[in-house]
Write a protein that binds this DNA or RNA. Structure first.
Length: 550
RNA sequence: GGCCCCAUCGUCUAGCCCGGUCUAGGACAUCUCCCUUUCACGGAGAGGACAGGGGUUCAAAUCCCCUUGGGGUCACCA
């Protein structure tokens, strides 16, 4: 039988890095064995699903280079003989198998409301006993059930568990036996007519001929339920491999809520009581501030972060894209969380992963996601790529995330900036984020006043400002305004007037034109800025620093 | 709390299944020095782990037990 794996996200948001890793391993396992990789959208929760989210998944997966053989059709991928691939479109299929279970006496209707069940759960908790469904509905007479159904009383369907222990065989975790007492008659169809996750998964995995289920370890205990369902339905049993969770450096589970956490912290630190105008509407703001469980939607959260001047932690694949990480690096790094090829190889690509991935080499322990190491990998990849490629990718990134910057710099300016930036960039975003001074109007530039800037500009004579005054005519006389042309003028000046210490002249220049102490190499910076801007900024800088120091 | 799983440098991990080749290897981070017009990059070097306790054995990171610690799960969410 042909190997088949599936990635089955619920479309309740963007693709999370943990999900991305699951997808990656599923893909690698199937594709490395001439198998099929299926994408299935588990949208059985009507309250939490959205079409936009499933498109987000497709985009993110596509960006990572993980393409599905079967699944929703999107830009030339997908389709397949086992559709539809949205669970919400498979209701008739589920109902058919539900009826089989009912007919065989393996399942039964139950009429307790959510509130009733909650009360029973609370009572058990108060008594210090674990809660299990009490099978009250099993005592109902057939005609009672029929009349309730006919009367339209909301009903769920539960699986009648056989009452024996279940031993799970797992490719990474080995064998584990779940005692019968731990598994109660769980719900397989909700009152709204939709199947629960457990039921839909089991049916779809069978019908889509999935042979290997690779999923996160949080599903491990669920496996017992799925096995019981397979037995009741007469289905085959796929092989299971449960992948360790990816978590934050502090050990907490990585989640979308981390963004809200970062925002709340920043808001508290700034003692903000009113929302920044036009970012969050006052009603939503109040609800959000008042309840830690309320989350801001992605766009609003991002706008608030921008307004507060903070960077949100990257959680979703799209966040890493926005931050300027390369897809091939993210994939490489993700694969290293929970798996390794077994030698000292750390840098590899999709193709390598495809041919070497083996679930038996998956680690059993949860991994803490180390963004610092990821950044280091990204830096290596960026500094190591051919410059044409860097230029191309930087431009694509800029068009998506910094269109105004791109416009103001112009094609030639961007090319020059890219040239000066590649070897000092850790992400595609660095070139834009760190260099905003290039695109502010000359007369709008302000200067950071700190120990460092004041020392460089106003230190002992000749001070930075003195050098700048002297440099003004020198630069003014430069006829070939290029990096080398400028260097040819400034170097001799430093030799003659700064004891050959180029820094004595370079640093004041840097501060004057950039407003701060960090920029690309100074001659490149001046060349990109142009002669007029350079001179104008120097004049204004001298004025700004000397005016306040007098 | 019940149940299930897990446990090697700060972090990701190699080694564990098939005990000796492990004075435990690599990577990121850290520290020192070098390079340097800033920030980075780069180069050289250093420190850093088998959770604890019992066994088994000539020999244990590797096998067994206990303790401790961590994670997952106990929904009409997936």
């Amino acid at each position: 039988m042909r190997i088949a794996t599936r990635f089955a996200p619920s479309p309740s948001g963007h693709l999370h890095v943990g999900g991305a890793r699951t997808a990656l391993f599923c893909w690698a396992f199937a594709k490395g064995r001439d198998g099929t990789f299926i994408l299935r959208i588990e949208d059985t929760d009507q309250k939490r699903s959205s079409d936009a989210a499933s498109i987000g998944f497709a985009k993110d997966l596509h960006w990572l280079g993980i393409l599905w053989d079967e699944g929703p059709q999107w830009q030339g991928v997908g389709g397949g003989p086992h559709g539809p691939y949205f669970q919400s479109e498979r209701l008739a299929i589920y109902n058919h198998h539900l009826q089989r279970l009912l007919d065989a006496g393996h399942a039964y209707y139950a009429f307790e409301t959510g509130e009733e069940l909650d009360a029973k759960r609370k009572a058990s908790a108060a008594a210090g006993k674990p809660y299990r469904y009490d099978r009250a509905a099993l005592a109902l007479q057939p005609d009672e059930v029929a009349s309730k159904l006919a009367a339209g009383v909301p009903a769920v369907i539960r699986l009648k568990c056989p009452g024996h222990d279940v031993t799970i065989k797992d490719e990474v975790l080995g064998e584990a036996t779940i005692p019968a007492t731990e598994i109660d008659d769980f719900v397989i169809r909700k009152a709204d007519g939709f199947p629960t996750y457990h039921f839909a998964v089991v049916v779809d995995d069978e019908l889509m001929q999935v042979t290997h289920v690779l999923r996160a370890q949080e599903h491990f205990t669920n496996t017992a339920k799925h096995m019981l369902l397979q037995d009741a339905l007469g289905f085959r049993r796929p092989a299971y491999a449960h992948l360790p969770i990816i978590c934050n450096p502090d050990g907490s589970k990585m989640s979308k809520r981390d963004k809200d956490k970062a925002l709340r912290k920043a808001v508290a630190e700034r003692k903000l009581t009113e929302p920044p105008t036009g970012i969050v509407d006052p009603g939503a703001w109040g609800a959000w501030l008042g309840d830690k469980n309320v989350q801001l939607d992605l766009e609003t959260g991002q706008r608030l972060a921008d307004a507060l001047g903070i960077t949100l932690p990257e959680i979703n694949v799209d966040d890493f894209k926005r931050s300027g990480y390369l897809p091939e690096v993210l994939i490489n790094f993700l694969a290293l969380n929970g798996w390794s090829p077994g030698n000292d190889i750390e840098k590899f690509d999709l193709e390598f992963l495809r041919t070497s991935f083996d679930p038996r080499r998956v680690v059993k322990t949860p991994a803490k996601f180390d963004r610092v190491k990821l950044l280091s990998f990204n830096c290596d990849a960026i500094t190591g790529m051919p410059h044409e490629e860097f230029l191309r990718r930087a431009i694509a990134h800029g068009r998506s995330y910094h269109p105004a910057f791109m416009d103001r710099m112009g094609e030639q300016g961007i090319a020059m900036l890219a040239k000066a930036s590649q070897e000092r960039s850790k992400t595609l975003d660095d070139m834009f984020r760190g260099n905003r001074f290039f695109v502010v109007a000359d007369d709008a530039l302000t200067w950071e006043r700190s120990k460092n800037t004041d020392k460089a500009m106003l230190g002992e004579a000749p001070s930075g400002c003195d050098h700048l005054r002297a440099l003004l005519p020198v630069l003014g006389g430069v006829t070939e305004w290029t990096s080398t042309g400028i260097e040819a003028a400034v170097k001799p000046y430093a030799e003659a007037h700064a004891a050959g210490q180029l820094g004595k002249a370079a640093q004041p220049l840097r501060i004057a034109v950039s407003g701060g102490t960090v920029s690309p190499p100074i001659f490149d910076t001046l060349a990109i800025l142009g002669k007029a801007s350079t001179l104008r900024r120097i004049e204004r800088a001298i004025a700004a620093f000397t005016a306040t120091s007098a």
